[in-house]
Design a binder for these strands. Structure first.
Lengths: 342, 342
DNA sequence: GAATAATGCTAAAAGGATTTACCAAAAATA
DNA sequence: TATTTTTGGTAAATCCTTTTAGCATTATTC
């Protein structure tokens, strides 16, 4: 039953005028191009009547802009990325942009392949959580005049805009929080990876421990996606081997979830036996008994900055496209009774 | 520094042959169109050498297919939808399709506007969790030959393919499970909405209660997005007013999260004071102490069926495009010690 | 009244592909 | 040798817009 899509040509023919005229009117250039008001009105009415909508595809081809932004993250089903997705979606749509998402699984080859397929789709911009070894691919992208914005993690060696958070500083603060509440044997649970944000968190922990002259206990779990079933068990073993630990700092929330299970299995109580803090706040931490302290990334601000930066770069007027480097502060939420061990 | 994109025309000129020939070779029609092997090889090598990639935009314009599928859900940051997103992404990309997402917030006007903007972008298909009052919009879509697949909820009054789960049956089972474990005053916590899946869950509960001749206690919370802060408190009031309740059935997981908080505040213990079950399983339910029973929707199968149906509809060969109506069974996970109250 | 300026509009190119219809030249057939 | 068939390709239309350059008229100026 598919009724044939009406084109600008059809309109021109029906009205006995030229395509050019219709196009000018459609693009609000009637005045500028000296189309008479009478004709303008007539065309506008006809357009409304037949419900004509220009083909975005043809426009994109002609103008070389597709009004599409790619949102390439490690895993779109991860709550953190999904939340950002939701927020940038809103802002993008408001500005006439659509968002295509994809997940890299932190696999460089997959990331490269995805970027390649998007190049040929003439997307306008990329918001990316880079995988390792993506330097040259991203540099190319920037050279080819795509708008590129890294987030969550960045790549120090290349010249590219980004929006990230203060990983090291917040990790330092969180560790210090544990220390100030009586912990001196604090374990750091993280994941084996080149991801710079993870490294920065480790640095923050390390620095805080060194400042106080405390020994470090670090558990580097293998990186995997999806989350391995045995993760909780591995943490449990680590806790048993280091039974003197009185504090735990999880580098990201899904590690904390697994860790909480391990603590439960071992009948270690929070906050009496162990003080816990996690990077990346989560609804769960407030639900869990007792509530778990966590570092909250400013999702709303991150999203807002992401779109702000994107739109700035996409807007040809702006000369300085290389000055958008945003580092945002996090918030440490102290939740379990904080003087538990004092 | 943006190096100019090379086009099929450039190749033809460089090699001193016609555009047509290049196109035939690119599309693997060299043999069919009787292009000599010599020339074919020469062109293929040149293409590889200059790294030519056809413009997807131009192809889409010419062929009328964009290889884009819209994934329109209530809220992409919801774990359920985000998980589906992740899974269909994989399958879509494997088949050369990209996915644009958008969230309706369950607002019919927003949904209609979104669908309108996508029509002009010549997307090929829509995977939709319909809002209320979307009947005519979706019928139009189907009439205009877009591939449309509803999921999570469907619209009985219109002729459109879908992939859903057995809401009523599973709700009946879950309620029966509570009854079999000694509950006879079971509260049903749901949300005020026209969404058919919510209604079906209510029906399942109602039926089970009526079969056993037990009184029903239903709490209809106002629909809202994002989740209201006072939700937990409202559930708490309900529990206080109906202090004789010994079982609770939550129509969806985020209600259960709020409910668990309320139970905690009221010092009601699970399973001793109250047996609980929730629709939509969640990682949390396994983490929570004690573990919470829940009905798990088959995410993997749902995703697989969605893409299977989509691809089938997009594949022009298939004649019967109206025969894809899938209803999938869920799994009830019984987690707290099941004989608690026997 | 002739030259200039303004008015109102349009033809055609461009963007990058696919595809139909056709055309020479060479080979095969009669 | 004359005719038909096959081979190896190409020109041009098409998808739908945007935009440059220009062209008749009419109005204005001197």
């Amino acid at each position: 039953m598919a009724k044939k899509k009406i084109s600008i040509k059809d309109i021109a023919k029906s009205l006995g005028i030229s395509i050019t005229t219709v196009s000018f009117i459609l693009n609000g250039k009637a005045k500028e191009k000296r189309i008479s008001e009478d004709l303008t009105k007539k065309v506008e009415e006809y357009i409304k009547e037949v419900g004509y909508k220009p083909s975005h595809l043809a426009q994109s081809l002609r103008l070389g802009k597709s009004k599409v932004i790619v949102f390439m993250v490690e895993d779109i089903s991860n709550q953190f990325f999904a939340s950002i997705a939701r927020k940038i979606e809103e802002k993008a749509y408001k500005n006439g942009y659509k968002i295509i998402y994809c997940s890299t699984n932190n696999d460089p080859e997959k990331a490269k392949a995805l970027i390649e397929t998007f190049k040929v789709r003439s997307v306008d911009g990329f918001i990316i959580t880079p995988t390792p070894n993506l330097e040259s691919t991203i540099t190319d992208l920037v050279d080819e005049d795509f708008a590129v914005l890294l987030f969550d993690r960045w790549i120090p060696s290349i010249d590219c805009n980004y929006v990230i958070v203060e990983n090291e500083k917040s990790a330092f603060e969180a560790t210090t929080h544990l220390i100030n509440n009586g912990c001196n044997k604090i374990g750091f649970i993280t994941v084996e990876s080149d991801q710079i944000q993870m490294n920065d968190r480790l640095k923050g922990y390390t620095k805080a421990m060194e400042v106080h002259g405390f020994p470090k206990d670090i558990l580097m779990l293998p990186f995997q996606n999806p989350v391995d079933q045995g993760l909780s068990y591995k943490i449990q073993l680590f806790l048993q081997k280091n039974s003197e630990l009185d504090g735990l700092f999880f580098a990201t929330n899904y590690l904390a979830f697994e860790g909480l299970q391990a603590l439960n299995t071992l009948k270690k109580r929070i906050p009496n036996d162990m003080l816990v803090v996690s990077f990346d706040d989560h609804y769960f931490f407030k639900l869990f008994q007792p509530n778990i302290s966590a570092i909250e990334q400013p999702l709303e601000v991150i999203s807002q900055k992401l779109m702000e930066g994107m739109l700035m770069m996409l807007d040809d007027q702006i000369a300085d496209k290389q000055g958008f480097r945003i580092i945002l502060p996090n918030t440490l939420h102290v939740r379990e009774s904080s003087d538990a061990k004092k």
